[in-house]
Design a protein around this nucleic acid. Structure first.
Lengths: 216, 216
DNA sequence: GTCGGCAGACTAACCAGTCGGTATGTCGTT
DNA sequence: AACGACATACCGACTGGTTAGTCTGCCGAC
C-alpha cells in the first residue's frame, strides 16, 4: 500500500546503496532511483496506462521483484513522481513569497519561477497533467490538496497586491491563478527544449503577460 | 480504417434510422450517436485506456458487433469526438474573425467564445487534452494539423492588432496564443458547472485578462 | 545463520478486434 | 404481387495476446 521508497532524501538511497556495479546496463545509482528515472521517461513517452511494469523494470535493469520490493504498486511510482515536482515547486514558492520586496516583484519572480522549474522538469510536468487522474482516489485527493496549498500561496500574493492597489481587482484572484497555471500546465504540450526561446525567456514573457494583465 | 459513421449530418443518421424502438434501454436515437454519447461520458469519467469497448456498448445498449459496424476501431471513436469539437470551434472562430469590427473587439469575442464553447462541451475538451496522445500517430498528426490551423487564425488576429498598434508587441504573438489556450485547456480541471461563475462570466474574465495583457 | 535485496516463474483477470450467422428491408423482374 | 438476390444492421462467442501483482527461494553481507 504505502510506498517504501523516498524515505527522507532520495539521494541518500538508504539501504539500497548496496546495489553495486552489476554487469548489466546502467551505473551504480541506487535501484529505486533507477526505477523512478525509467518510469518517468516511459510514462512521459507512452503514458501511464500504456507502460507496463515489465518495461519499466527492463529499462532500469532489474526485475519485478525489485520494483515491488521498493514500491507498493505501479500507482505508487506515479505518486512519487508528482511528489518530487510538487515539493520542489512549493519550496521555491515559499522562499520567494517570503522575501522582502514589493509584491509586484515577488509575484513576477514566482510566476517566472514555476515556468522555469516546469520546463526543467518537463517530463514530470507532462505526466502530472496527463496522468494525475489515473491515480487511486486517495492518492489523487492528497495530490490535489498539495496542489491547492500551492495555488493558495500564489493567490495570496495576488490578493495582497489587489488590496494595496498595485494590481487591478477587475478579475477575482483565483481566476487569475487558474489563468496563469493553465498556461504553465500547457507548457509541456508546446515547449520543446532547444527551441527558439530559452526557458528563462519564456518565463519572463509569461510572467510579463501576467503582470501586464494585472496592471490597474 | 476509416470511420463509416458521421457520413454527412450526424442527425440524419442515414440507414441507421431503421434502429427501431427496441425493447432495451435507451430511446430511438440512432445507434452511432448513442455510441458516441456513451463513449464520451465514459472516456471523460475513466479515461480512454481504462474504458473497455464492452463498457461502451453496454452503456449504449448494443453489442460489439454494432460498434465495429459503424466505427473502424476504438481509436476512431476518440477521433470523432475530437473532430466534433474542433469543427465547432473552428467554424465559430472563422465567423467571428471575419466580422467587420475593430481587432480588439474581434479578439475579445473570439477569446471569450472558445471559453464558452469549451465549457459547453467540457467532457469533449477534457478528453481532448487528456487523451489526444493515445490516438494512433496518423490520426494524432491530423488532429494536430487542424488544431494548428485554429491557432494560426487566432494568432493572425493578435498580429493584426500588434501591427496596427492597438496591442503591445512586447510578447511574440504565438506565445500569447499558447498562454491563452493553456488556460482554455485547463478549464476542464477546475471549472465545475453550477459553480460560482456562469460560463459567460468566466469567458468575459479570461478574455479581459488577455486583452489587458495586450494593452500597449 | 539470518536478513535485506532481489530474481523470475506463475496466476487470474482482461481486452480489442474477428467472424460466422441471423433478421429485416429494398429492388428489379416477371 | 410474388419471388429471388443482395445489402444493411446487428448479435455474441471466440481468439490471441497482455497485464499487475504474488510468491517462493537464492545469495551475499554482517
Amino acid at each position: 500500500m504505502a510506498t517504501r521508497a523516498g524515505e527522507g532524501d532520495p539521494v541518500r538511497g538508504s539501504g539500497a546503496r548496496t546495489a553495486r556495479v552489476r554487469s548489466g546496463d546502467d551505473t551504480r545509482v541506487p535501484v529505486p532511483q533507477r526505477l523512478m528515472a525509467a518510469a518517468t521517461r516511459l510514462f512521459a513517452e507512452q503514458g501511464y496506462d500504456r507502460t507496463s511494469v515489465q518495461e519499466i523494470v527492463e529499462a532500469a535493469g532489474v526485475t519485478k521483484g525489485a520494483l515491488y520490493h521498493y514500491f507498493g504498486s505501479k500507482d505508487d511510482l506515479l505518486h512519487e513522481i508528482y511528489g518530487r515536482l510538487l515539493r520542489l515547486q512549493q519550496e521555491r514558492l515559499d522562499l520567494l513569497a517570503d522575501r522582502a520586496a514589493p509584491v509586484e516583484e515577488r509575484l513576477r519572480q514566482a510566476a517566472a519561477d514555476v515556468v522555469v522549474t516546469t520546463i526543467d522538469n518537463l517530463d514530470d510536468a507532462m505526466i502530472f497533467f496527463r496522468s494525475m487522474h489515473q491515480l487511486s482516489p486517495e492518492k489523487q485527493k492528497q495530490v490535489r490538496a498539495e496542489r491547492r496549498r500551492y495555488h493558495e500561496r500564489f493567490r495570496a500574493l495576488i490578493e495582497e497586491g489587489q488590496r494595496s492597489g498595485v494590481f487591478s481587482d477587475a478579475t477575482p484572484a483565483d481566476l487569475v491563478v487558474d489563468y496563469h497555471f493553465g498556461s504553465v500546465h500547457h507548457l509541456s504540450s508546446w515547449y520543446r527544449p532547444g527551441g527558439r526561446l530559452t526557458p528563462q525567456a519564456v518565463a519572463d514573457h509569461l510572467a510579463g503577460l501576467l503582470l501586464r494583465a494585472l496592471r490597474p
